[in-house]
Design a protein around this nucleic acid. Structure first.
Length: 426
DNA sequence: TCTGGGGTCCTAGGACCC
DNA sequence: TCTGGGGTCCTAGGACCC
């Protein structure tokens, strides 16, 4: 296990917007937002859009007038593009650090142990990412992950630091922590902040100085680790190789509420289908499937219902047919008996799979041999949909009402991964 | 019928993050 | 205040076993 004594956190400013800007220079210096799935709300905003008061997660229909008044440029999310740009940024990072941990699509931890001239090194990295990929990044440096996150946060908030902040020096860290609100520390959310406020802990320095046992009492071991990390003791592993992921989910809010079992099952069939595609793409099989659905929690004036049902997948599978069948069974089992009285309106449904294993590691049993016809069918299904577009072939279980309703009317081209998207090729 | 202690496994839900 | 989707980790409590 790698235990760096100096860690850098590099993150991209407004990553999705920055990715869109690479290929469209007219987006520079103007307000830009990127929307969530289904074009529901704003999930990335350029600095100019933030300055106009567009909040994270603001629903598009509520900011429509602002968008038109200020000529804000609007994009549907283009995850294929962002994923590919992210991969290219990581390649650059590898030239500046012997070990890189990919933390999210726009953040990486880098091992900076033993590097002389930390700030200059960070500035070379920033320049290289800008020049080779065209993405602006910022770097925070500290002795633990939590302190690197603190430093990155400082670099983000204070333009005066010009994108680099190094708090590996004890006295600088001391000064900075006393000025930072505790809620801005990595791992401290609203609930924990409220609890901490009750016992007079308001700044990151207060948190660092609290007894770690007390931290464990009022929070969990997670809060205790945060305290120790702020003190400079590394408690969170540096994960160079991506750990085997534990689960995978596809959940969606429904445009129109689902009021009967049939409609719910159609939505779940579509989600299970997508889960199957993701499993096969990653070469995984699942041993467990969970169905969840609930009413709108923001409408407390309406009858509330929230449930989930988990079932074992034996043998393990990534076959759409089996996933959809199991989703159906779970949905029926979980369907509320008092629905006729209450008339629940379900606004969200999802499929979660767990117990994931690489398909080649799947245990073979004598009686449950994998069905070769099914895997050949799935390969055919995937290749047709890859060639002719998503949802060219679907299971009838998805129904026809739902098909093609996903909104993405402002999608940019897949500039780096789909040659036919390039204007010159069309 | 009432009573002990200790352990594992599973699930649901909470909290947080990007 | 309103709100999207996909993750992780942790804890409490129930079921079950010896």
């Amino acid at each position: 296990m790698r235990r760096p004594n100096l860690i850098a956190l590099s993150d991209s400013a407004n990553f999705y917007v920055s990715a869109e800007r690479i290929f469209d220079p007219t987006l520079t210096g103007v307000p830009v937002i990127v929307l969530s799935n289904n074009d529901g709300c704003a999930i990335a905003r350029s600095d100019e859009a933030k300055a106009l008061g567009i909040k994270m997660g603001a629903p598009l229909h509520l900011i429509r007038d602002k968008v038109e008044r200020h000529g804000i440029r609007v994009f549907s999310s283009n995850y294929t593009l962002y994923g590919d740009i992210s991969r290219r940024v990581v390649e650059v990072y590898r030239d500046f650090s012997p070990a890189v941990e990919i933390y999210s699509i726009d953040e990486c931890f880098l091992d900076f142990s033993g590097i002389r001239g930390l700030e200059a090194h960070a500035r070379s990295l920033i320049a290289a990412v800008q020049q080779r990929i065209g993405i602006p990044v910022r770097v925070g440096i500290g002795p633990t992950k939590t302190l690197a996150k603190v430093a990155n946060e400082l670099a983000k908030r204070n333009p005066i630091f010009d994108k680099v902040m190094d708090i590996s020096d004890q006295s600088i860290a001391e000064h900075m922590l006393s000025k930072m609100a505790v809620k801005d520390v990595w791992g401290i959310g609203r609930r924990t902040q409220a609890k901490l406020a009750q016992i007079g802990i308001h700044t990151a320095a207060d948190l660092r100085d609290m007894p770690s046992r007390l931290a464990r009492q009022i929070g969990t071991v997670t809060l205790e680790r945060t305290v120790l990390e702020l003190q400079g003791e590394a408690c969170i592993d540096f994960e160079e190789v991506e750990p085997q992921r534990q689960g995978m989910a596809v959940t969606r809010s429904a445009g129109t509420p689902m009021r009967d079992l049939e409609t719910l099952c159609e939505a779940l069939a579509a989600h299970a289908t997508r889960v199957g595609e993701k499993l096969r793409y990653h070469g995984l099989v699942a041993g467990q499937l969970t169905v969840m659905f609930h009413t709108n929690p923001h409408r407390q004036d309406r009858p509330q219902f929230s449930t989930s049902r988990t079932a074992e997948l034996a043998p393990m599978t990534n076959s759409t047919l089996e996933l959809v069948a199991m989703a159906n069974r779970c949905a029926k089992a979980a369907w509320p008996r008092d629905h006729a009285d209450k008339g629940y309106a379900f606004t969200k449904a999802g499929i979660i799979v767990g117990d994931l294993l690489r398909a080649e590691d799947q245990p073979r049993t004598l009686f449950d041999a994998p069905n070769p016809a099914s895997s050949a069918l799935m390969r055919a299904l995937d290749s047709v949909n890859a060639r002719f577009g998503k949802k060219t072939l679907v299971l009838a279980a998805e129904g026809i009402r739902n098909s093609g309703t996903a909104q993405a009317s402002h999608r940019s081209p897949k500039w780096t991964t789909r040659i036919t998207d390039l204007p010159i090729v069309r």
